[in-house]
Amino acid sequence: MQSNSNRDLAVGVFVLLGLGVIAYLSLQVGGLSLREPGGLVLFATFDDIGGLSPRSSVRIGGVKVGRVESIDLDDDLRARVRLNLARDLELSVDTAAAIRTSGLLGDQFVALEPGAEDELLVTGEDFAFTESAINLDKLIGSVVHGEGLGGGD
């Protein structure tokens, strides 16, 4: 009986360990969120989102404050991005959302630049000011053809 209960203890530890690892892989690595509702949900509309994808991060001054939840086309065929942010985040109504890239070819993320108004954005509202992703192809094209950069002759 003694060896039996030792064995059961070992099996219990093994099962707990396995479930713990599955939970780690799902929650931490896989980014599955158990408390989906409750965050601050805001929308931002862009002409061009570049390589932004769901689960991309949202940052203020480089600090991660949330993630992109989903991306859809709105009625005007512009990209409407749904952002899920930390619940206690206080953003003024003139906060600007821009799509930036970390490094030259790195991941794209939404950068928020806080404004100066006293009024705060509440869940479900849209950002008034947005700035699309920089399209590397267009940028190279404009340099090659001498357009728009004030160069030329």
Partner: peptide
Amino acid sequence: LEAAVEFDTDV
């Protein structure tokens, strides 16, 4: 690692 792995496609 955490940015690339998603629950419903990968885990």
